[in-house]
């Protein structure tokens, strides 16, 4: 049976995390720096929402406020962490392999697979706010060799078309999971179809800017919806406003007991 859910902007977990007290070792930019984070799924202090979607555990819509703000060096294993930058400048530093210092600006994005372990730091070093979406997912295998890949999405050239940024398409960044991230920047009145790979795949669709009607559901700015176990693999996206910006995460729906238990307890949510 076809399953879907909607998460409105205000229903996400909204946190403000300041660089003070014990948090200043985690959040950079003391004394003025603070991160605002809107989580679609349960993460850190936000634990009253959905646990995830397929192997996805974090979909964090974040702003780093103040020069020097971000996350100080901290360790990861296994998680595949993707960042998509929309405003400002993100300095990403990681210790995986030979180590990496990268600077990302609007349109740039990376896939960092922490695998067997690595530390990273995420910093905004200019006075402009840095806006990024962070996506974390479980990998296909544990303790993979760590990898880092990055690329750029040129919205001037790739308008009114669904562009796969991460996944198995030509020039997309590789990822160790059956998952694809696509971006659609489009204008009012245009209509698009996203076709799922199989019945075992689902899609989490997030309206970053503008508005869209997705499979008949009206979504405004920062609203999102998830679709899985569909009879019809085609999902229609009708764009409501010019310069709408839509993120589509298509993934294999792993058989996850935690998510099933949550859905059972929240039937009709």
């Amino acid at each position: 049976m076809s399953k879907s859910f909607i998460i409105r902007d205000h229903e996400r977990g909204h946190d403000t995390i300041r660089s003070d007290g014990t948090r200043s070792s985690y959040i950079a930019g003391h004394p003025d720096g603070f991160v605002t984070r809107a989580s679609s799924f349960n993460f850190h202090d936000y634990q009253s929402g959905r646990p995830g979607f397929g192997p996805v555990r974090v979909f964090g819509d974040e702003i780093f406020h103040g020069a020097g703000c971000g996350y100080n060096m901290h360790p990861h294993h296994n998680f595949v962490i993707c960042a998509f930058v929309f405003e400002g400048q993100l300095t990403h530093i990681n210790t995986a392999g030979e180590g990496m210092v990268d600077q990302l600006r609007a349109g740039d994005y990376y896939v960092f697979s922490a695998g067997s372990g690595g530390k990273h730091s995420e910093l905004s070093v200019t006075s402009e706010d840095m806006h990024a979406i962070y996506l974390w997912l479980m990998p296909r295998q544990l303790f993979l060799p760590p990898t880092y890949h990055r690329a750029h999405f040129d919205y001037r050239r790739r308008r009114n078309t669904i562009v796969q940024l991460v996944g198995d398409a030509d020039t997309a960044l590789p990822i160790p999971q059956d998952l694809r991230v696509s971006r659609l920047m489009a204008d009012a009145g245009r209509s698009f179809t996203y076709t799922l790979r199989s019945r075992g795949h689902g899609a989490y669709i997030f309206v970053r800017e503008g508005s869209a009607t997705v499979d008949g559901v009206a979504l405004g700015r920062r609203d999102s919806a998830g679709f899985s176990d569909r009879d019809d693999p085609a999902i229609t996206i009708d764009i409501g406003e010019d310069d709408s910006d839509i993120i589509v995460v298509e993934t294999i729906m792993i058989d996850d007991d935690n998510i099933k238990a949550w859905e059972h307890d929240h039937a009709g949510h």
């Binding site: 067997s116 372990g117 479980m138 295998q141 544990l142 303790f143 993979l144 007991d257 935690n258």
Partner: peptide
Amino acid sequence: EMVFIGYAEGGSDLA
């Protein structure tokens, strides 16, 4: 969270 994910080659030694 309990996971059902296998190790990459050499991964269990590292783990």
